[in-house]
């Protein structure tokens, strides 16, 4: 399990996960909402969380994993404190999202999607987020930034670094 401290320590996240699962028990189509809440809780969906969800909802681990890997919003790996989702959908792509992506990689020292060493930022190319009018568009922790040009990138990163 995630908690590595002394045996008397109560794994509060595990308890919270149990509450989430209980809330949806017997509800049809519960898997995706449970995964959403579990990811909010843990930041990502490691194997022990997926096992608990499978067992709790009475579905197979294979099915849970299939859904997790299908949707880009679910992650198997820990994410940064600030999660940058960069749309590479058709509209964003033709409006220069590729160059924005390259700029983020350069500024964050990443080779592609991933997390910075200090755990501050994670970068992830995603599919259309439904804001094509603002293309090229990104989201940082749910906050939308549109009509970007590459020179906006260092400024944005600095803004979040300053927030700590």
């Amino acid at each position: 399990m995630s908690c590595k401290c002394s045996s008397t320590c109560v794994d509060t996240k595990a308890q919270e996960l149990e509450r989430i699962i209980d809330k949806y028990k017997g509800v049809k189509g519960a898997l995706i909402p449970v995964l959403h809440e579990a990811q909010e809780l843990y930041g990502y969906l490691p194997i022990h969380v997926q096992k608990a969800i499978a067992e709790g909802l009475g579905v197979s681990l294979a099915e849970v994993y299939g859904v997790v890997t299908f949707y880009t919003q679910f992650s198997l790996y820990p994410k940064g404190k600030y999660q940058i989702q960069l749309c590479l959908g058709t509209a964003c792509y033709v409006k220069g999202a590729g160059a924005i992506y390259e700029e983020f990689k350069k500024e964050l020292g990443l080779k592609g999607d991933g997390v910075t060493e200090d755990g501050m930022f994670s970068l992830e190319a995603c599919r259309c987020i439904g804001a094509c009018g603002l293309a090229p568009v990104i989201m940082i922790n749910g906050e939308v930034y549109g009509r970007l040009v590459p020179s906006d990138v260092p400024k944005l990163i600095q803004k979040y670094r300053d927030m700590g």
Binding site: I47, Q50, S60, L61, A62, E63, V64, Y65, G66, T69, F70, L76
Partner: peptide
């Protein structure tokens, strides 16, 4: 039994066991 599923999507789609 559900030992295998369709995982990932698009060109990355693969039938495999979880993880």
């Amino acid at each position: 039994v559900s030992a295998i599923e369709t995982n990932e999507r698009g060109f990355d789609t693969i039938v495999s066991s979880p993880f």
